[in-house]
Nucleic acid binder design. Structure first.
Length: 483
RNA sequence: GGCCUCAUCGUCUAACGGUUAGGACAUCAGGUUCUCAUCCUGACAAUCCGGGUUCAAUUCCCGGUGAGGUCACCA
C-alpha cells in the first residue's frame, strides 16, 4: 500500500511551490490506489501563525487535493499534529539514549554560537561533533538532545533526482529534541513517517542536503528509510530564487480570488516539472491521476509564468458546462462548503439567476478569468454611461466627425426600429444590419463598431445580434437613440 | 566560501547516440462581416562554453561558467 503525505508547518498560507509538492504526493498515492495523508508539523511554537491550519486545509480543498487522513478528519494513525505526538518522540529519543546514540547537549546557545563563530573565523566548517562533550550530562529534557552521529559516506537513490552522493563531512550531531521539549523536524518527520507507514517522502529540494543526516538517523534507529522523491523548486517570476513567502509568493487562495478555476490551477501546477511525454497540454485531475509517475518529473527548477496560467484558465473556462461555470461565478465550489467570492459586478449581483445565465452563455468564450466578468457583463444589467473617449481612440472611428457618428447611429436606430418585436431574432437582426451597411454605404469596422460602443460602452463584448437580442428591442433602441 | 543539485526557444517543456531539435505560452503578421478577446493560418525563436569518447552527440565523460539549494534549539 502506497502512502504519501504532505507535511506543512502552520506558519501561514501555502504558495504554489508548496501546493505542487502536495499535489504530486497526492497524485502518487491516487495513481497507485494508496492513501494520501496530511500531517501538521507544528513543532516550532515561535513561528506558528494563528489560523494556518484552517487556511492550509482550505487551500487543499479548494484545489481538490483531498487527503484520506489528517488533523481534522483523523485516521488510523491519529493524531496528525506533531504537537500532539510528543510522547512518541520522547519514547524513540529514550531508545536512542539507551543505545548510546543520543546525548544531552550541555552548551548554551551562546556557547554554540561562539564555537560556530570561531570556526568560521578560522575558515573551517563548523561541526558540532568536533566539540562533542566527553561526559555529557544525563538528559533531563531541559537540554537539547543530539544524535551521536556515525559519520560515513552515503549513496542513495531518489525517485526523481536519481543517484545521489554525499561525503561523511556533511554528517553532524544534529538536534533531535529542542530544549523546549519539542522535537525538530529532522527527528519528528522520521518518527512520524515510520509510524504512519509512509512509503514515499515527497518534498522539496531544500531537504536534499540534510538527507545524509537522516540516513544516519535511520541507521541509528535501525529502520529502513522510505523512498525519497525530491522535487525541484519553483522559482519566482523574475526568475532567480526559490519561490518563498518572504519574497511575496502568493497565497494559492489568492488565485481563486483572482478568478482562476481549480482545474486550471491543478493543470498548470502539474505542468511545471511534469508531463506525460505527449503533446497534451490540458489534463483533467482524473487524467493526471491516471498518468502521473515520478519518473517523468523533471530535475530542473521551473519558473512561474502567470501568462501561461491565464491561457490555461481560459481554456478551462471554455470547457466547463454552463451550470458548473455559473456556480463558480457565484463563488461556489464543489470541494468547499463555504463560498469563495462572487465575481458579478454591482448590477449583476442584483440580476436574477436566469438573466445572469443568459449573459454567461454568450460571454463564456471571452472570459480569461472569472474576474473579467464585470467588464463583460455589467452593461447587460445596467445602462452604461456613454464614453465617447473610447470612440475617439478607435483608429477607424476617429476618422469620422462626431456629427457623422451620431448620424450613423440615428440611421441604425431608425432601421432597427422598423423591426418589430416578434422578428427580433439573430437572423433578422443580422439581415437588418447588413441592409443598413448598404443603405449607409458604410463598412463593418465602422458601423458595427459604432453600434457596439453605443450599446455597451465596453472595451469588448459578444457579437452584435446576440448582444441586441439579450438587451431586447426596447433597450437596444433606447441606447442607440440616447447616444 | 564548503558541500549538493541543475542547465534545450523570452517562459513551460519533448528528445532516453542518428530528428529539418517537436509542442505549448508569450510576441509579431494575416484571416474569420464590428473593437477587444476567442478561433484558424503563418512567422520569429533554443541545445551555456571548451575539451574529449564515438562513424555519429542536446543526449555519455571531464573541465569551466551560470543558476538554485544547503550549511539553525526553522521546517
Amino acid at each position: 500500500m502506497i502512502r504519501t503525505r504532505f507535511a506543512p508547518s502552520p506558519t501561514g498560507y501555502i504558495h504554489v511551490g508548496g501546493i505542487r509538492t502536495a499535489l504530486f504526493a497526492f497524485l502518487v498515492a491516487r495513481n497507485a490506489g494508496g492513501k494520501f495523508v496530511l500531517r501538521l508539523e507544528d513543532t516550532d511554537k515561535k513561528r506558528e501563525v494563528e489560523g494556518s491550519e484552517a487556511h492550509i486545509i482550505r487551500s487543499l480543498r479548494a484545489l481538490g487535493i483531498e487527503y484520506d487522513e489528517g488533523p481534522d478528519i483523523g485516521g488510523p494513525f491519529a493524531p496528525y499534529r506533531q504537537s500532539e505526538r510528543l510522547d512518541n518522540y520522547k519514547k524513540w529519543a529514550e531508545k536512542l539514549v539507551a543505545a548510546g546514540r543520543a546525548y544531552a547537549d550541555p552548551y548554551t546557545p551562546e556557547e554554540v554560537q561562539k564555537l560556530r563563530a570561531d570556526a568560521e573565523e578560522s575558515g573551517k566548517p563548523f561541526r558540532f561533533r568536533d566539540h562533542r562533550p566527553e561526559n555529557p550530562p544525563v538528559w533531563d529534557e531541559s537540554q537539547p538532545l543530539r544524535l551521536k552521529s556515525d559519520p560515513k559516506d552515503y549513496a542513495w537513490h531518489d525517485a526523481v533526482m536519481g543517484n545521489l552522493l554525499a561525503g561523511a563531512d556533511s554528517i553532524d550531531d544534529f538536534i533531535l529534541i529542542k530544549s523546549d521539549g519539542y522535537p525538530t523536524y529532522n527527528f519528528a518527520h522520521i518518527i512520524d513517517d515510520l509510524e504512519m507507514e509512509i512509503t514515499h517522502i515527497i518534498r522539496g529540494q531544500e531537504f536534499i542536503a540534510s538527507t545524509p543526516n537522516y540516513l544516519n538517523l535511520y541507521e541509528a534507529l535501525e529502520i529502513t528509510p522510505p523512498i525519497f522523491a525530491t522535487m525541484p523548486h519553483i522559482l519566482n517570476e523574475t526568475g532567480n530564487k526559490k519561490l518563498g513567502k518572504r519574497d511575496g509568493a502568493k497565497d494559492v487562495l489568492e488565485y481563486f480570488r483572482d478568478g482562476f478555476v481549480q482545474e486550471a490551477m491543478v493543470n498548470f501546477i502539474a505542468s511545471m516539472g511534469w508531463n506525460d511525454g505527449t503533446e497534451q497540454e490540458i489534463f483533467t485531475i482524473e487524467e493526471l491521476i491516471a498518468k502521473f509517475t515520478l519518473d517523468r518529473v523533471g530535475r530542473s527548477g521551473a519558473r512561474f509564468d502567470e501568462k501561461r496560467l491565464v491561457w490555461m484558465n481560459s481554456q478551462w473556462i471554455k470547457k466547463l458546462d454552463l451550470d458548473d461555470l455559473y456556480a463558480r461565478t457565484l463563488g461556489k465550489s464543489q470541494t468547499l462548503s463555504d463560498a469563495l467570492n462572487n465575481f458579478w459586478g454591482p448590477a449583476g449581483q442584483n440580476a436574477s439567476d436566469d438573466e445572469r445565465r443568459k449573459v454567461l452563455t454568450i460571454i463564456q468564450d471571452r472570459l480569461k478569468t472569472l474576474a473579467d466578468l464585470p467588464t463583460l457583463s455589467e452593461y447587460f444589467f445596467t445602462r452604461p454611461e456613454p464614453n465617447w473617449g473610447m470612440i475617439d481612440e478607435n483608429k477607424q472611428l476617429k476618422k469620422l466627425t462626431r456629427d457623422e457618428q451620431i448620424e450613423l447611429l440615428k440611421a441604425a436606430a431608425d432601421k432597427l426600429g422598423k423591426l418589430d418585436a416578434e422578428n427580433w431574432n439573430a437572423e433578422e437582426l443580422q439581415n437588418t444590419l447588413n441592409e443598413l451597411l448598404i443603405e449607409t454605404d458604410s463598412k463593418p469596422p465602422i458601423l458595427f463598431s459604432l453600434i457596439r460602443y453605443a450599446l455597451t460602452w465596453a472595451p469588448f463584448s459578444p457579437g452584435l445580434p446576440e448582444t441586441m437580442m439579450l438587451l431586447g428591442r426596447d433597450e437596444t433602441l433606447t441606447r442607440l437613440a440616447q447616444s
